[in-house]
């Protein structure tokens, strides 16, 4: 019987900061992009309120900007979806099922992988490096 090869990601970012609270989400996305630009692979584990970013209720755009109604403003979920699509298999996003349920935020966009916190250690083992961002 063939043994299944387990995929190893270059970087796992565990994002524990709430969006809109600081520069952490933007830093995580920029850091991810920098790794992708160097040919590496990145997986983000959304912890706590970071799970709000990928709800499918956002749609593709933010609410209208009353001061620039014609402007294009992608929603957080659209940004994540775009990065996953452009990453061509090298960028992944995991929603923590416990954090999501605790917040009633269980309707993630389909590109997001749902994972129980009981698989945190396995996920860390599946990455060459793990970085916690946010300080929760």
């Amino acid at each position: 019987m063939a043994r299944m090869e387990r995929r190893v990601w270059d970087l796992l970012l565990i994002l524990t900061a709430a969006p809109h609270s600081g520069d952490v989400v933007t830093s995580a996305l920029r850091l991810s992009q920098a790794v992708l630009d160097r040919g590496g692979s990145v997986r983000v584990w959304a912890c706590g309120y970071a799970n709000m970013m990928t709800q499918d209720t956002f749609g593709d755009t933010k609410l209208p900007n009353t001061r620039d109604p014609e402007g294009h403003y992608p929603s957080p979920s659209a940004v994540v979806q775009r990065m996953i699509a452009d990453g061509d298999g090298r960028f992944g996003w995991i929603a923590c099922t416990a954090c999501s349920e605790e917040r009633g935020a269980v309707h993630h966009v389909p590109q997001v992988r749902h994972r129980s916190p009981l698989r945190l250690a396995t996920t860390i083992a599946g990455a060459r490096q793990t970085l916690y961002l946010g300080g929760a």
Binding site: H20, D23, V25, T26, R67, D68, V79
Partner: peptide, 19 residues
Amino acid sequence: AYRGAVEAQFFHALYGLLD
């Protein structure tokens, strides 16, 4: 001062006051 960038875009505290 800082309350998000990518996730906030135009919808930040000063925008709220202007609006």
